[in-house]
């Protein structure tokens, strides 16, 4: 699997992309494949604030729930509406169309401390 170079990754299997102070957050291909068929995604509403390292939503398969942790903190500017009606998109395109939320990052300098694609690839390899 190709993990995009421009993203950063967490040990809890989220990815984050930063552009003009706005962080787009999603879960990785590895995370979706561990969960299996995703049936529901619970996300915060725009205006909510998320805290780095704290859970901000969850992803459900038929028999499991996984919390999603915020790789960066800030105010939610957008939640991906597509997932409300088509949770299966998260299985199909986790690094693209099925991003979860966008956040106005309160501390953009946190970004480089996360894993890069190569490090994440190694991490996932080691975990499985």
């Amino acid at each position: 699997m190709n993990y995009p170079e421009k993203y950063r990754y967490t040990k809890e299997h989220e990815w984050v992309a930063l552009e003009d102070g706005i962080a787009t957050i999603g879960i990785t291909h590895h995370a979706q494949s561990e969960l299996g068929d995703i049936v529901y995604v619970d996300l915060p509403k725009p205006g909510a604030s998320v805290e780095k390292g704290k859970t901000f939503g969850s992803v459900e398969s038929v028999k499991a729930v996984s919390d999603i942790y915020a790789p960066v903190g800030g105010e939610v500017t957008e939640a991906n509406d597509l997932l409300a009606t088509k949770p299966e998109k998260l299985n199909e395109d986790p690094h693209g169309a099925a991003w979860l939320i966008r956040v106005r990052a309160s501390n953009p300098e946190e970004f480089p401390h996360l894993m890069d694609a190569a490090e994440y690839q190694t991490y996932v390899g080691a975990e499985s």
């Binding site: 529901y40 459900e60 028999k63 499991a64 729930v65």
Partner: peptide
């Protein structure tokens, strides 16, 4: 929708 229930979500 069993993910609402105790045997999956446990304390939540």
């Amino acid at each position: 929708l069993a993910t609402r229930e105790q045997h999956i979500r446990r304390e939540k």
